[in-house]
Design a protein around this nucleic acid. Sequence first.
DNA 1: CCTTGCAAAATTGGATACCAATCTTAATTA
DNA 2: TAATTAAGATTGGTATCCAATTTTGCAAGG
Lengths: 251, 251
Amino acid sequence: MKNRSQQIAETLTRAILSHRLVPGAKLGERELAEIFKVSRIVVRQALIRIADDGLVSIEPNRGAFVARPSLQEALEIYDTLTLLEQGVAQQLADRLGASGWAELRQHVERQRQAVDDENHGLADMLGQEFHTLFIRLSRNRVVQEIHAQLVRRATLIRSLFSSQFDYCHLLDEHSKVIDLLEKGRVRQAQKLIDTHHHNVVRGYIMEGSIYEEYPTHVALAPYLDGRGDNISEFSATDQGTLAGVQSLAKH
Amino acid sequence: MKNRSQQIAETLTRAILSHRLVPGAKLGERELAEIFKVSRIVVRQALIRIADDGLVSIEPNRGAFVARPSLQEALEIYDTLTLLEQGVAQQLADRLGASGWAELRQHVERQRQAVDDENHGLADMLGQEFHTLFIRLSRNRVVQEIHAQLVRRATLIRSLFSSQFDYCHLLDEHSKVIDLLEKGRVRQAQKLIDTHHHNVVRGYIMEGSIYEEYPTHVALAPYLDGRGDNISEFSATDQGTLAGVQSLAKH
DNA sequence: CCTTGCAAAATTGGATACCAATCTTAATTA
DNA sequence: TAATTAAGATTGGTATCCAATTTTGCAAGG
C-alpha cells in the first residue's frame, strides 16, 4: 500500500475520468479532507500530483478546480496524440513481430464483438484501450507514460462534449491502420491516424456537455468504503448507487 | 510571487540541471527545510512536484533522491525526443512560414559564432536551445511542455556521462535539417534527426561522470540569497563561488 | 431593482509541535 | 567475524494555530 496522498490522487483521478467530477468543480481542501478523513496537507499533496498531470488546475489563494481545458488545448492534445501515434506507427512498421500484429487484431476483434453485442460502455473502453495497446507495443515506457497522460487529459475533455459517434467507423479505421502498417504502407497509415483523431474530435465538438454536476461528496461517495475498485468508470449515471449514499453523504 | 513550494521546486530543478546536485544525492526533508528556512511540509510538496517531472525519485519511507536514470531509460528518453522532433519536423515542413525558417537559421548562426569564439558553455546552451526553438515553432503548447520535460531529463542524464563531442558536426546537422525541411525533403530530415540524437547519445556514453559531488547545502548555496537568478547553469565547477559560501553554509 | 462598498466569514498557504512506523546505524553478543 | 538487537534518525501523517487573501452577505445609495 502506497502513500495516502497517492491513493487519494488516484481516487480523484478516477472520479474525474469517470465524469463524476466535472470540469470547473471546486476541490476544496477542507471538504476533501473531511470526505477522505485525512488532514488537509495530505489532500494538498494529492492535488499537487494531479495538477501536474493536467487534470486539476490550482489557482493561488483560490483553490483547486477540475481543469476545464480550452478548445485550443483540446485540439493541441489530440494533435499531440496524433503525433505520438504516427511516430510509433513508423516504429511498429519497422520492427513489430508477428505476435504483436496478432495482439492488435485480437483486440480489434474483441471490440467488434462488444459493438455487435451493443455493449456501448465496453466498446468505448476497448476503443480507448486500442490506442494504449498500440503505444505499448513500442516498448518505450517514456512514450507510454506521456501517452497515458494525454489519454487522461483527452478523457477529461470528453466531460465537456457529447460523445456520440460512429463506433463502427472508428473500429474500421483501427483495423485499416493495422493492415496498412503490416504491409509497410506507413505513410497512408499515418494519414489515417490523423483523420481518425479528427473524426474523434469532430464527434465531440457537436454539442455541449451531457454530464450532470454532482456535489463533490456525492461524486466521491462510491469510492470511499473498501477502496471502491469495482466501480465502473464508464457509466457515470448510476442513479441507484447515488441515491443510496446521498443520505449518508449529506453531512 | 508564487508558492513557496514552487519556488523551491524550481530552485532544486536548476541545481539538478546545472549538475550541482548529482544523481543519487539524498534530498532529506529536514536538511532542505533548514537550508531554505521553511517547514518540512513545503519541502515535501516541492519534492512531489519535481518527482512528477522525473528529476527526483521518492522512495517510500526512505526519502527523495536525485533520479539516476538507467541506460535503458536514457535511450528511451532520446528515442522519444527523436519521435517528437520528427513529428514536428513534418508539421513545420507543411506549414512553417518564411519568418520561422529565418528564426531557425539565425539561431544556428548565433551558435556558430559562439563556437568560433570557443565559448563552449554558450555553444552548448544554444545547441540545446535549438531543439526547444524548433519545437516552439509548432505552436503547440502541449508538445512544448512535454518536450521541455524530456529536455530536462536529458540534461539530468548528462550528469552521468561525459559531454565531449563535436559541436561543429552537430551544428552542421542542425543547419542541414533546416535546409532539408524547407525544401520539403521531410523523410531525409527525419532520418537526420534520428542520427543526430544517436550522435549526441554516442557522445555521452563514452565515459563516466565528470561532475563532482557537493554536499547538498553547498550545492544549493548560490541559489539562496536574492533568488539567485544570475547563476550560470552551464559552468558547475565555479570553485570561487563555492569556496566563498562554504564557511557560511557550514551550519 | 440593480449596483457598489465594506465588513465578516471562509479558505488557502504556511508554521510548529507532536506521534507512529520504518529505516539506518551502532553496539553488543555469539 | 558475523548476526542480532537496541538506539537514533527520517519519513509520513495529525492537530492546532496564524497571517493573508478571497468570497460572501448585507446594507446603502443611485
